Every structure is written in structure tokens, then in C-alpha cells.
Deep mutational scan, measured.
Amino acid sequence: MTYKAILNGKTLKGETTTEAVDAATAEKVFKQYANDNGVDGEWTYDDATKTFTVTE
């Protein structure tokens, strides 16, 4: 399944996708990606669109 992350960081804005077996696995991948890029904020998840959003 393909999951998407939308990054609304102070220094990084954009989107990325990952293939994962479930939302929990995708969330770990996206949170690591955000952390590696200095983005730390509030996370939300929309199951209907399989989209995570982080906003700083």
C-alpha cells in the first residue's frame, strides 16, 4: 500500500511517499524522515487518503 506524507516544516516543505504494509509502519518511516530533515511538529493522519501531515 502506498502512503503519503505532507511536510509543512519551517525549513522543509514538500511531499514524499512510501510503500508499507500498514499505517503504523509508514508512520515510523515518515517520522524518521522528518527527524532526519529537522522537522518536528504536530502529526495527523487521514485514513481515507492514506496521508500523514506534519506541521511545525
Rank of each mutant, 00 (worst) to 15 (best):
Y45H: 00
A5G: 04
E19A: 08
T53P: 00
A26V: 01
Y45N: 00
T49L: 07
T16S: 07
T51E: 04
E56Y: 10
F52N: 01
K10F: 11
T51Y: 02
T11P: 03
D40V: 14
V21F: 12
T17H: 10
A5Q: 03
D40S: 12
G41K: 00
A20Q: 05
T25G: 08
A24M: 12
N35Q: 15
T53S: 06
T49P: 00
N35V: 13
N8P: 03
D22C: 05
A26L: 00
I6P: 02
L7F: 15
E27I: 10
D40M: 13
Y33E: 02
K4I: 12
T25D: 09
T25R: 06
F30S: 00
F30E: 00
A26P: 00
D40P: 04
N37C: 14
M1T: 15
E19C: 14
E56P: 07
A5R: 00
T53I: 09
T2V: 14
V21Y: 11
A5I: 15
V54C: 12
G41C: 03
V29M: 09
V21A: 12
N8M: 11
N35E: 14
G9T: 15
K4T: 13
Y45K: 00
E56I: 07
I6W: 04
G14Y: 14
A23S: 10
E56T: 07
W43F: 04
Y3M: 04
V39K: 01
V21H: 12
A34P: 01
Y3L: 03
G9C: 14
K28N: 08
A34Y: 06
N37W: 14
A5K: 02
M1D: 14
M1N: 14
K31P: 01
T49W: 04
K28A: 13
G41F: 05
N35A: 15
G41I: 03
T51R: 03
A34V: 06
T44R: 08
K31I: 07
F30Q: 00
I6T: 05
T51M: 03
G38D: 07
G38K: 07
E42V: 13
V39T: 03
A23M: 11
A5Y: 09
D22N: 09
T16K: 10
E19N: 13
K10G: 07
V29S: 05
E15L: 11
K50W: 05
A48G: 09
L7A: 02
L12Y: 15
T53Q: 06
F30W: 01
D40L: 12
T51P: 00
K31Y: 06
T18G: 02
V39Y: 08
N37V: 14
E19D: 11
A34K: 00
I6C: 07
G41N: 03
T16I: 15
D36Q: 12
G14V: 14
T53R: 06
T11V: 11
Y33H: 04
D36F: 10
D46S: 05
V29R: 09
L7Q: 01
D46G: 00
K28R: 12
T2P: 06
A24K: 11
V54D: 01
E27S: 06
E42R: 09
E15D: 05
Q32R: 10
T49I: 06
D22W: 01
L12M: 13
V54S: 01
K28P: 03
Y45C: 00
D36N: 08
K28V: 09
E56F: 08
A26F: 01
N8I: 14
A26G: 00
K50N: 08
